[in-house]
Design a protein around this nucleic acid. Structure first.
Length: 346
DNA sequence: AAATCTTTCAACCGCAGAACG
DNA sequence: GCGTTCTGCGGTTGAAAGATT
């Protein structure tokens, strides 16, 4: 039995409730075995009576928690995957702190684990951005930056290592005014020019019909990620290494012209934004959103100064990198230019 | 190597609603 | 219908582990 040496796991912290003769604090291996054996023989039931009948000097609550969060055979341990992160962000945007409801869509994950993930990772980032985790600002950041970023990384992770010539391909594409979105594949890249948003996609988990991100267990992300992948078409160390061949998901998806389904992209009035139009679906929308937070809300300097954001910690959790910051700056510049042009035309 | 700070996560707490007698 | 008990949920705590100084 793996009893992790974290949290309240030191036996020295175990307390006995004198009045009730109940144990508190970390569970011992013996207690775990007792609970497992009892449930194996009798099944789950009323937790208080279960605790008594099993001879555990614990509250029913404590037994239930221990079983559900730790001992249950289908509890999944280990790092939260990128797909799970994306799903958590998505479901939290829908339901808020409904941890148990969110957990129902992540088999093997407990509400406690998801809650902990949210608090330790997501809220930490909000704090670094100096904005409230429930603010529109922060929610927009999640939706338009992190989630597309996660999609990108999921795709990159599922694509085989690459033929570096692809980077040159995408760079060339960019210089000709078209946008290359996502990770081009060396074998089956599909480039289509039948609409104004000239891009190609390697959308491993995209549902072609709906544009939704598909995740395990039949869950579809509510956002339409068609074209939302944010890998810019210029050559960067990052995107130059994300090319590959078709993978198990196998979906080479044709470009989808209607990018307005979810993000409601305005008609491209500004030639200078043409290349960004397709590749920056989420960005474009947020740049024109009433909140306008990209111009004045977020403290990107603080983010840059944060090792956690830029180059520290678990890469699966690190949704920001130098390329992102550079790209965001370009976005801001372009947007400002666009606004200036618009103003001049008035 | 030691001290200090930060992160992680198991476990507890209080509350609300459901179930029971 | 009413009081009590149980269950489940979300918020919080705090100790160990890890990182940094």
């Amino acid at each position: 039995m793996d009893v992790k040496g974290r949290g309240r796991s030191m036996s020295s912290t175990i307390q006995i409730d004198e009045d009730m003769d109940l144990r508190r604090g970390p569970w011992t291996v013996d207690e775990d075995f007792t609970l497992i054996n009892y449930i194996a023989n009798h099944g789950e039931g009323r937790w208080n009576s279960l605790a008594r009948c099993a001879g555990l000097k614990r509250t029913g609550k404590s037994c239930r928690l221990r079983w559900l969060n730790y001992l249950r055979p289908d509890v999944r341990r280990g790092n939260i995957t990128l797909q799970e992160q994306l799903l958590i962000l998505e479901l939290h945007s829908r339901w808020g702190n409904r941890w148990s409801k969110i957990a129902q869509h992540l088999p093997g994950r407990t509400d406690n684990e998801i809650k902990n993930y949210w608090r330790t990772r997501v809220q930490k980032h909000a704090k670094q951005l100096k904005c409230d985790v429930n603010s529109k600002q922060f929610k927009d950041t999640m939706r338009y930056l992190w989630m597309p970023r996660l999609v990108e990384r999921i795709q990159a992770a599922t694509v085989a290592p690459a033929n570096t010539s692809i980077a040159a391909t995408t760079t060339t594409t960019a210089t000709t005014g078209a946008c290359s979105i996502g990770s081009s594949t060396s074998t089956t890249t599909t480039t289509t020019n039948n609409n104004s948003n000239n891009y190609h996609i390697n959308n491993n988990n995209l549902d072609v019909q709906t544009g939704q991100m598909l995740l395990p267990h039949g869950v579809a992300i509510g956002h339409d990620f068609r074209g939302a992948q944010v890998t810019p078409s210029y050559n960067t160390p990052e995107n130059s290494s994300t090319a590959g061949s078709s993978d198990s998901f196998g979906a080479q998806v044709s470009p989808v012209s209607d990018l307005t389904d979810y993000y409601n992209i305005p008609v491209n009035n500004n030639p200078s934004l043409e290349c960004f139009q397709a590749s920056q679906v989420g960005y474009q929308d947020s740049l024109t959103s009433p909140s306008g937070y990209f111009n004045n809300g977020l403290d990107f300097q603080a983010m840059e100064q944060s090792n956690q954001w830029l180059d520290g910690g678990d890469t699966s959790d690190n949704l920001w990198n130098v390329d992102d910051m550079w790209f965001l700056q370009q976005q801001l510049n372009n947007n400002n230019n666009s606004n200036n042009n618009s103003n001049n035309n008035i």
